[in-house]
Design a binder for these strands. Structure first.
Length: 451
RNA sequence: GUGGGCAUAGCUCAAUUGGUUAGAGCACCUGACUGUGGAUCAGGAGGUUGCCGGUUCAAUUCCGGUUGCCCACCCCA
């Protein structure tokens, strides 16, 4: 015998959770379509050199590398953005000048799994990207779509953090931070919210920066004002070109977001936000749940204007975000929005007698043609056995079909909730069932807790 | 990758300072109920106490190792 087990970070998504995931997925997908995005799928496996050199050293340690007999070096995709860039590079001439695509597929990362934080080694990402435009309308639209996504799923207390890579670079330059220290400094700065200003200062002082540099840096980050004010404050400092470019971009994006009718208080300009992936070149953003900080970001993205160029030697601007579907489901289930028992509007058609199995099959088929969801019991068995199944499956309506029914030409309908049983002539039974299940379906829609 | 905790029935957990046959609830199966589920009652099945070694007359309990899981940090979706 082989002990059944799962590789760490992998999980089975069981029927109840899967049904829930499908509801969430349908909403997300509908939204992407509404924004005019086209679907795309790419393979799980890519050549290793397609993936390397894009994410940064730390991330690339998390690739699942595949050994294969023919000597090719392969890996499972780490995200959906680089495969998209590869796809664009292979099809530049056929694609429209602006290409908006959404993609919903799994990605794999060999990091330590942590279910409570919605963190797995295999997880579902929903990406939306706009390829081919420099316009900051794209950045704003991508942020708008992330927000609409969360709104559609019923999230309320979230915040979109927004920053700009060029601005960040400019600010670090102003403070004289060496390039090799940039990432480390960013990472520490990022923790201002979590561990507080003083601890951050202490960490920076520890053989990284001079007190003078730290003082300078904090003139940029130490601000409680609103977005507009923060940006204006920075602008008034007359900083280097990079910083100014970043500020200008962010102001423009915030302006467009206004036009998208996105309320400004959902967005927080955070000059310390860095984000991990190397390929970002402009705006960067992510969303977090204020009540569930341990879950980390639900969405994250930014502008990456020279990623595609890596494959064709000519830059094509691009901007996009990913929506972390598994993480969203984790968050919703933590918020108790996930109803484990999804009400069923199925009808169970029983087979009580082997001799009349064909009658049950035919009736089930007829009902399905009428649009009724029918679960046909697969074998002749005792009523007890089949009713107990219906009970476990939360099925409300059961059709009893056995010798009595065939002889009397009456089908017995049992309501599992009330225990009531009524006999209907063959020609009326479908109509009756349809009436009952339609009613239930409507009630279900009216009463459905929006996840 | 760093730190901490846990490991006993399918699940959730008991088992006195180390002491006889490792228990309970839920779930499962059978019957009361030969055409009626949930409720009740009676019974049944289910275990190499993660694995390997050590200490001891005796280990679920103590020690060492190992594997797995959980939590936090890091990073991220």
């Amino acid at each position: 015998m082989i002990k059944p087990r799962l590789y760490r970070g992998m999980r089975d998504i069981e029927p109840a959770e899967m049904e829930f995931q499908e509801i969430v997925l349908a909403k997300v997908q509908e939204l992407f379509k509404k924004f005019g995005f086209l679907p795309l799928k790419t393979p799980a496996i890519e050549y290793l050199d397609i993936l390397t050199g894009k994410y940064g050293e730390e991330s690339e340690k998390l690739f699942y590398n595949l050994a294969y007999g023919d000597g090719h070096t392969l890996a499972l995709r780490y995200d959906l953005t680089v495969p998209l860039a590869r796809y664009i590079a292979m099809h530049t001439h056929e694609l429209p000048n602006i290409f908006k695509r959404y993609q919903i597929q799994q990605v794999w990362r060999a990091e330590r799994a942590q279910p409570r934080q919605g963190r797995f080694r295999e997880f579902l990402q929903c990406d939306v990207d706009i390829i081919g435009s420099n316009s900051l309308v794209s950045d704003a639209e991508i942020i708008a779509i992330s927000i609409e996504c969360l709104e559609a799923l019923g999230f309320k207390n979230y915040s979109v953090k927004l920053n700009h890579r060029v601005l960040l670079k400019g600010l670090l330059n102003e403070a004289g931070v060496h390039q090799e220290n940039e990432m480390v400094v960013c990472r520490i700065l990022d923790k201002i919210d979590k561990i507080g200003m003083d601890k951050v200062k202490a960490q920076l002082e520890k053989d990284l920066l001079e007190p003078g540099q730290i003082k300078k840096l904090f003139t940029f980050f130490d601000s409680k004002a609103d977005n507009e004010q923060k940006l204006t404050n920075l602008e008034n400092m007359k900083l280097n070109k990079d910083a100014q470019k970043g500020i200008e971009d962010l102001k423009t994006i915030l302006g467009h977001l206004n036009s998208f009718n996105i309320s400004q208080d959902k967005i927080e300009f955070d000059p310390a936000l860095a984000r991990g992936l190397d390929y970002y070149t402009g705006s960067i953003f992510e969303t977090v749940l204020l009540d569930h900080p341990h879950i980390g970001s639900l969405t994250g993205g930014g502008r990456y204007d020279n990623l595609i160029g890596v494959f064709i030697g000519r830059d094509i601007p691009a901007c996009g975000t990913t929506v972390g579907l598994d993480r969203i489901v984790t968050a919703l289930s933590e918020m108790k929005r996930l109803d484990k028992k999804i009400p069923s509007n199925k009808v169970l058609v029983t087979i009580l007698d082997e001799n009349y199995a064909s009658y049950s099959i035919k009736l089930a088929s007829k009902m399905r043609k009428e649009g009724i969801t029918v679960d046909l019991f697969p074998e002749p068995a005792s009523i007890r056995y089949q009713l107990s199944y219906a009970d476990k499956m939360n099925i409300e309506f059961v059709l009893l079909i056995g010798e009595n029914e065939i002889k009397n030409k009456m089908i017995r309908l049992k309501n599992m909730k009330t225990g009531e049983q009524t006999d209907y002539p063959e020609d009326l039974i479908i109509k009756e069932i349809k009436k009952l299940t339609d009613k239930k379906e409507n009630g279900k829609i009216e009463n459905a807790k929006t996840p």
